[in-house]
Design a protein around this nucleic acid. Structure first.
Lengths: 249, 249
DNA sequence: GCAAAAGTGTTGTCCTTACACCCATGC
DNA sequence: GCATGGGTGTAAGGACAACACTTTTGC
């Protein structure tokens, strides 16, 4: 070992009594129920949506909550989040990322339950909900005033995460159809960032990045000049994505 | 409620059986021991350090690990992290932020234990370790090759977090003495980002931000021309910090 | 006086922003 | 032909990167 230490090793060193039985140690720890909650964002009709179900707890009657479930024994939390998504929506192959763990001991009326929030983004058009148990539905993010548990707080955190993330990472493309117009792309950014962007500069920016493939196709069924349809070049992005740079606070 | 839904409410709605006894529900969930691990970064002798102790598990004899402990009953995890820091180092009033939850079921040899990593940064000079149980010491981050549990992976994640965070947030000032020279500040950034920066541009950048207070004092005991000492204007920063802007991936 | 680091400005390039007009389509 | 949004260029200002010499101090 070449580990360097900066304090004196001569003093203050007490003999460590090594623990032989790790299982016994772990058995002595308090245990807590763990759940995962999936905060699934979608985009439709120029609005950012999130997928919710009615809470099935009587105390939260009528309130909405995220898709969630407890983590099984020996189940990694990432796996649990994917499982919940699959079981509740029938969807697979979506982006999913751990955002934050919520541990307020009074967040669940049934006693202490820790939850880990996962964010996911998916294309509403390409994922028709196969199951609608508990009134599973897309809700306009901006219209949500109250939720069951501490889910409103979780939503706020996840929404902030999304706003930040989409500026650094092209997550937005997961929310759009495979082929999309630049107007749709801009609407998506405007909806998520809750702002207006200059159309010309937005186009310049994205063309300069050079991750858009011109399909040669055009929009259809629009009551005005149809826009060109593009695809996102995921491969090229993966190869050339760059590190954040610049001190900026 | 003005919540808008985008799918049909007429079909697919099954009657929900509401759960009356939330406590009984929670009691049926599997339970998992939870720990917090404190990844405490410091800066000394132009090197980024991290605070480690010897693992007290025999199976990890000789390996290093973070300061950690299980979360008490009804203890919020943030509080647990602060508690661990206080109990093990006697330190208080430091920055602490939740980074990520690690849930590999085999990460602990005594069975499944979930851990939540918290990052903290502190000034080695101003926090002399009052307790040195288990050979508590500062280690050069770059020299650490192996660790107990999955702590090397946790370190990697937290180091990446730190690199990203310090570009957006002036965390670095927590690692420096109250009064510091621009050279020390630059050394800190170079150590954390593992890169070389142009001295003139670095100075320009920080002066332009206008968060530095000129103390009028100078370095002492240096074998060359002494540099001016500055303080960081935390108040001004808090008032004027701005949002991230610009699509950039 | 020499070594070592502090301190300082300019220039070119690139990115960002602001802004206005013509074009293609459906009706 | 008119309403609607698609598509385009330019100029000014600001940020960033590259770069070299003089100053101050300890020894």
């Amino acid at each position: 070992m070449t580990i360097e230490t900066t304090a004196q090793t001569e003093q203050g060193v007490t003999e460590i009594t090594l623990i032989k039985d790790a299982e016994k140690l772990v058995a002595s720890y308090p245990r807590v129920p763990i759940t995962v909650d999936c905060v699934i964002f979608g985009f439709e009709e120029n609005e950012l949506k999130v997928l919710l179900i009615r809470s099935d707890l009587e105390i939260f009657k009528g309130e909405w909550s995220f898709l969630g479930d407890f983590a099984d024994n020996n189940e990694e939390l990432d796996d649990a989040a994917y499982r919940v998504l699959r079981e509740r929506t029938g969807m697979d192959d979506v982006y999913l990322e751990q955002v934050k763990t919520f541990s307020n001991p009074r967040r669940h009326p049934g006693g202490r339950v820790l939850t880990v929030a996962y964010c996911s983004l998916l294309n509403i058009q390409h994922h028709h909900l196969k199951k609608m148990d508990n009134e599973l539905h897309w809700h306009n993010v901006n219209a949500i005033k109250t939720m069951a548990f501490d889910h409103k707080e979780i939503l706020t955190e996840c929404y902030k995460w999304l706003q930040k993330r989409i500026l650094e990472h092209p997550l937005g493309f997961n929310l759009l159809p495979e082929k999309f117009s630049l107007r749709e792309l801009q609407n998506l950014y405007e909806a998520i960032l809750d702002t207006k962007l200059d159309r010309r500069n937005f186009r310049k920016k994205f063309f300069a990045m050079d991750f858009l493939i011109d399909t040669g196709e055009f929009e259809d069924d629009v009551p005005h000049r149809p826009g060109k349809l593009y695809q996102f070049n995921f491969d090229k992005y993966e190869k050339t994505k760059r590190k954040l740079t610049g001190i900026d606070f």
